[in-house]
Simulated scan of single mutants.
Amino acid sequence: MSIYAGQKIALLTQHGKEQVIAPVLEPALGCTIEHVSGFDTDQLGTFTRDIPRPGTQREAARRKARMGMSLSGLPLGMASEGSFVPDPYTGMFPWNIELLVLIDDSLGIEVVGMAEGTGHSAHVDARDWQSVESFATAQDFPQHQLVMRPQSQDDPRVRKGIADWAGLRSGFDACMAQSDNQQVFVETDLRAFANPDRMALIRQAAVDLQHRLASLCPACDAPGYWVTERQPGLPCSVCCLPTSSYRSEVWTCVHCQHKSVQKRTDITVADPKHCAYCNR
């Protein structure tokens, strides 16, 4: 049984994230996810750039979790934070990283679940309705909502929450009337409730957090015992020299800092494509 069975965990969100987090964690942990409102989380940073996010992604999630704990008076809190970066393979496509942070003040620990994958993020500079219509169709609108503003991506006159074709058309007409350069900037809405692809990754982050919380330290039984380092050096299957493929994993406790090194068991030798000697 989880140490969180019967306990309440505060979750501060105004974008509906409890809808994908609670169904994963409540049955797995036996806890209750307490949805906390009463604070505008957009004040901590927005994807539309009108309010910059200070600090790192993890720091932002931590701030939200702490705020939820303060508002609810609970010693347990969690929050998620997303970011969009170029993909790690080609650098050409949007990549979505989702973090879900759990803070447990009774144990003095912080455990982070993560998920990442292709992000649903795009934009267009449109000069006519046909361009907007084509972009919206390509972006799976209205399932994925859109954001619009006149002139450029930096114009402060932003229109959010565009969720139907009538609203898209009226928003375009209004922005075009405000635009000095006869151009309207349209982009995907990256808020969780407006972006189903983000919601799917947030759910995956909750699953990852569930697995981490189920992994207990062999020294102190605290949850969150997980891999913190992979040590390279698995021998090449051709020349037997060490490669960049990992040969062992370092597991670390977030509570007592106990560490153990576990040898890799799925394979014993590495593909020569990972061998510096074979690829001279």
Rank of each mutant, 00 (worst) to 15 (best):
A192C: 11
P52W: 01
L99N: 09
R53M: 06
V269D: 13
R230I: 01
A205Q: 00
Q14W: 03
D189E: 12
E116N: 14
L74Y: 10
S80T: 10
W129L: 13
R157F: 02
P23H: 04
N279Y: 02
F93G: 00
A214C: 05
I21Y: 09
G224V: 03
V158T: 15
H123G: 00
D125K: 08
Q57K: 01
K263W: 12
K8M: 09
Q262W: 05
V112R: 05
A122Y: 05
G167T: 03
A222W: 01
D104C: 12
M92G: 06
K160A: 10
K273P: 03
W129H: 08
L44R: 02
L44F: 15
S244G: 15
H120E: 06
G161V: 01
P232T: 03
A60G: 14
Q145A: 09
E34T: 11
S152K: 02
Q210M: 08
E110Y: 11
T252Y: 04
M199C: 05
M67L: 15
D208I: 01
A60W: 02
T48K: 10
D208A: 12
E229K: 13
T41D: 06
K8C: 09
Q182G: 08
Q178V: 03
L99W: 09
C240N: 15
C220P: 11
A205K: 04
I33T: 05
V158S: 03
N181W: 11
R66E: 15
P54W: 00
A194Y: 01
K259S: 13
A136M: 03
M114H: 13
L71W: 06
D271W: 09
T32C: 12
T90D: 13
P156V: 01
L76F: 14
Y89P: 02
H258Q: 10
F135N: 07
P156A: 06
Q257V: 09
K160C: 12
G171I: 06
C31V: 04
F172I: 08
K263E: 15
T118E: 15
D271F: 05
G233H: 05
G77L: 06
L99R: 12
A136C: 07
S37K: 15
V261D: 08
G38F: 09
V250L: 13
K273N: 09
V254T: 12
L201H: 07
F172E: 08
A28K: 07
C256V: 01
S72C: 03
P223W: 00
A214R: 13
C175S: 14
M78F: 03
W226L: 11
S121I: 00
I33R: 05
P218S: 11
R62H: 14
Q19R: 15
C240E: 15
S131D: 09
T118R: 15
F141H: 01
